[in-house]
Design a protein around this nucleic acid. Structure first.
Lengths: 221, 221
DNA sequence: AAAAATATTTAGACAAATCTAAAAAATTAA
DNA sequence: TTAATTTTTTAGATTTGTCTAAATATTTTT
């Protein structure tokens, strides 16, 4: 089956919002897609008719098994293109997302499988997110949120939850990238901000909001 | 300026049909695009409003300078992707066109310029057609139509004018590809078909129609 | 040069994806 | 447990790209 760009964007966003199968609300999805709730309702009816999601009026919705399969194949395309842009074309880390958003809608399965092979079947994209294989399987990671990291423990940035330009710009400004080693020096109870240290730079503070979007994994000292 | 996929397909087809600036007709374009003449008229009005073509009711049409510029940038994208699919992803010669038709609509200029660099600034695509550079310049070739080739003269296939699946299938069936050396043994005045010889294969006949779609260039014996 | 044939355009409709404004349902607060 | 607020849906429009059928121009034939 083939889906329109618009349908694919809805499916992908629902997949990200529902996480481990919580129900997604109309307003939430409208905000994520920068569209209006009324437009979301319209599209939901269509996706329901195609059996891609479970949806009852006023009750929220969630992808069906088939819907998840479709979502994973879109995510596979997106992340393979990100890997290609970064590793082969030398795009900067914060430039790849936007271009991959366009490339992901090219639907030839053969193209994607050949690209995967050409790239050497990478398991993670440049943001540290896992790339689903042909069957939709994704490698598991042991990462945790930076907010959950114990003080004075060193960990390595493994992925970011949010890839908005504003977020990526902020990370760049703070010299944080995939693989950056971070140590939490202090947690401030007042606003839950964190003082962190990177390499030999002076320690500095980041907001809880930002820290909630950074995944890290422990690393031997 | 950015154009829709549909607009881009019209511009590209007009460019191919007009050749060295002959006027294109509504029916001709409708057939090329597998659409209806009425739809063509609708789109022409839109493209005229965007100053991409010269068009007066019932008089045929032709791309403006700006329109040609746009056409060349679409062709650039298409041929670079064809080159990538063929050289990097090892797609067969007759499979690349269809996928490139989709990829060509991804519009990031940076993507295309980086891809060009990554591929080593190729001058010709796998079908032998020239790839426009960033400025729209295309390398010139000295190829002629196979129908124009003198008998008993050896020449090498340099490109094909038509990339329909039917055409590519026929070429494959006849063992003709870019670089194949062909000698015209005889021209039949009755239906203008040609008897040709390839390598050590027995000579065989091809139609005028097919020969009109094959470009060759002379080669020292 | 009129008639016939062909090419092109207009008029009006339709599907997809979106929107605004208003109605209806669900949730939260008083 | 009503009232107020928020969320969601419906109704009706709009834009883009397409279509069919009919009208109008142009070209070709007789």
């Amino acid at each position: 089956m083939n889906y329109s760009q618009s349908e694919e964007n809805y499916i992908k966003s629902i997949y990200h919002l529902q996480g481990d199968s919580k129900n997604v609300s109309t307003n939430e999805l409208a905000e994520e897609l920068h569209t209006r709730p009324a437009s979301v309702t319209d599209m939901l009816k269509k996706l329901k008719a195609k059996k891609l999601l479970h949806y009852e009026k006023y009750q929220g919705f969630r992808l069906s098994t088939e819907g998840k399969k479709v979502a994973l194949s879109i995510i596979r395309r997106h992340r393979l293109w990100e890997y290609f842009l970064s590793v082969k074309l030398q795009f900067a880390w914060d430039e790849i997302h936007e271009v991959a958003e366009e490339l992901e809608h090219v639907s030839s399965k053969k193209l994607i499988d050949k690209l995967d092979e050409y790239l050497g079947f990478p398991k993670f994209d440049p943001h540290g997110d896992p790339i689903p294989d042909q069957l939709g399987k994704i490698a598991t990671t042991d990462h945790i949120l930076l907010t959950e990291l114990t003080a004075n423990q060193i960990a390595e940035v493994s992925s970011v939850a949010n890839q908005s330009a504003a977020m990526l710009d902020m990370l760049k400004h703070n010299n944080i990238g995939i693989g950056t080693r971070i140590e939490v020096k202090k947690k401030f109870p007042f606003d839950h901000s964190l003082e962190i240290k990177i390499r030999n730079l002076p320690a500095f503070t980041i907001s809880e909001r930002l820290a909630q979007n950074i995944y890290v994994k422990y690393v031997k000292k």
